[in-house]
Amino acid sequence: MVGLQNTLLISVAALAIGLIIGTLMATIKLIPSSEKLPVKVLKKIVDAYVALFRGTPIVVQLLIMYFVALPLIGLARVPPLIVAMIAFGLNSGAYVSEMVRGGILSVDKGQMEAGRTLGLTYVQTMKLIILPQAIKNIVPMIGNEFIALIKETSVVSFIAVIDLTKAFKQIGDATYEYIIPYLMLALCYLILVLGITYLLRLVERRMRRSDRD
């Protein structure tokens, strides 16, 4: 039970962190063609961030976060559960930023132009016209990211967090019988993922009903 709770806890917290970081970074990337130096630097930083977190395995990021990065800044005593949340959150941010950006870019560019020719500002057009349309593209992707997180967090036992996977492994270790626990483990993940998929479908259907395009 602790295992299930931790798996969900890490996934939810990581998604929340990922949403905040990802939205922020997508916003920076979408600042209209500015030649101003600070903006350019910010955009480069975002690019580097995305490349770094997408270009290395999450297990490696987790290990570095726990054994290298946090001790280096004097935070060696942070509970591993929190470390897992942060590591997966930072990782998720890289993916979410691409999703948010893609969702916004998929809105026809005539929409922004139409808003601007009506005298609306960039921010007003973004908020009232672009985002409400983009959100329909983004939500399903965020749902998939959550599903990915549930499964990917199965590596957190590398830093001694007891999640679903670790819990079942412990059962196996105790009984020297692995077949049943591991099949049960797979079933658990499957039920989780199917359950979330089902909820996602409901949300999507509701959104499509309001999408009279």
């Binding site: 005539g110 132009e113 139409a114 808003g115 601007r116 009506l118 609306l120 500002t121 409400p132 309001s210």
Partner: peptide, 20 residues
């Protein structure tokens, strides 16, 4: 520029109505 644009209506080939 927003104040200027308000006084200049524009109509596009692709309508660009807000579908939502």
């Amino acid at each position: 520029i927003n104040e200027v644009r308000r006084k200049m209506g524009m109509v596009f080939q692709s309508f660009n109505l807000f579908p939502h």
